[in-house]
Amino acid sequence: MKDRTLALAGMMQGLRLVQSIARSGQADEADLAASLASVFRIDADSVEAVYGSAHLMKTGLEILVGQFQGGGQRDGSLGKMAMTVLSVERQLNARADLLDALQEGIIEAGRQREHFGVTHPTVVARLGEVYANTVSRLSTRVLVQGDPTQLQQEAVVAQVRACLLAAVRSAVLWRQMRGSYWDFLLRRRAMVDAARRWLAT
């Protein structure tokens, strides 16, 4: 459950970045770097290694606690996006052609990352293109609400797509850790406890 919770927190952090960028064109730089870096760690030895450190997913873990505890901390639009991302990941997993194209695109973007850095506009733009050419071709799409002025800017759209790709990466990881929709119905308290343990370490 602990690893599954961290993967879900990674998805939440990616989606919170999507919200922030779509609404204001701004995002926490450390959170952005951590989320985008997870896209490139395809063969990591552990769930925590995918993110570099659980500490780098602090925002996502805090969001997860707030979402599952309810009350004033719950964000309905974020929860809706999260469920859509999980549905998108299931569809993506059934498309070998898109998975191959996704891997090729990430490898190419990884070469650019080595040269420029993970949050450089060139790398972000490439990740955005990868998302548009693979995940966006599925029948289900993640609807992003924000400031229309921001969402008309190419750089903002690229960042949004790159962060959505990071969220999908975490959704893949969650499924690999045997995550299921039952977690949201029956295991919320266990995930809150796991998230708090991660936050305490």
Rank of each mutant, 00 (worst) to 15 (best):
Y51M: 13
R41P: 01
E108I: 12
L86D: 09
Q26I: 09
Q67A: 04
A82I: 11
L61I: 08
A9S: 13
A109I: 01
V88F: 11
R126T: 15
R23A: 11
M191L: 14
S35L: 06
R95M: 03
P148Q: 13
G14C: 13
R187M: 06
V88Q: 08
Q103G: 14
S77W: 12
L15T: 01
T140R: 07
Q152I: 01
E29D: 12
V65I: 12
L186V: 04
G105Y: 02
P121E: 14
D3N: 15
A155T: 14
D31P: 01
Q19N: 14
S136E: 08
V168Y: 01
V160Y: 00
L186Q: 10
T149S: 12
V142R: 00
G128F: 07
A30E: 10
G179W: 01
G66R: 01
A101L: 13
R23E: 11
G79H: 05
V124H: 06
N93H: 05
L56S: 07
E129K: 12
A82N: 03
S20C: 08
S136P: 00
V168D: 03
F40I: 09
R187W: 09
L186E: 06
A166E: 02
I21S: 00
L173C: 09
G179Q: 07
D3E: 14
R16E: 15
L186N: 09
M83W: 07
G14R: 05
A109D: 06
V142W: 00
D97G: 03
G14I: 08
D100V: 01
Q152G: 14
N133Q: 12
A194E: 12
V124C: 10
S77A: 15
S46Y: 12
V124Y: 07
Y131T: 00
R111C: 01
M83Q: 09
Q153E: 15
L186D: 08
R4D: 02
I106F: 10
A200V: 04
R74A: 12
S170H: 07
E29K: 13
R90I: 07
S139V: 13
G146N: 04
S77I: 10
S180C: 02
V130T: 02
M11N: 03
A200N: 10
H115M: 15
R4L: 09
S77R: 13
Q91G: 13
R188N: 12
G110Y: 08
A132M: 09
V135Q: 00
D31V: 01
W182T: 07
Q152D: 15
I106A: 06
L86E: 07
R113K: 13
E48Q: 08
A125C: 08
V130S: 03
I63T: 13
A162Q: 03
A171V: 08
L15W: 03
A49F: 06
R16M: 14
V135S: 00
A162Y: 01
V135W: 00
V123C: 04
I106E: 08
V172Q: 02
F68E: 02
V85Q: 10
A9N: 09
Q145W: 04
Q19S: 10
V142I: 08
V192W: 05
L138H: 03
W182G: 11
A194H: 10
M191R: 11
W174K: 06
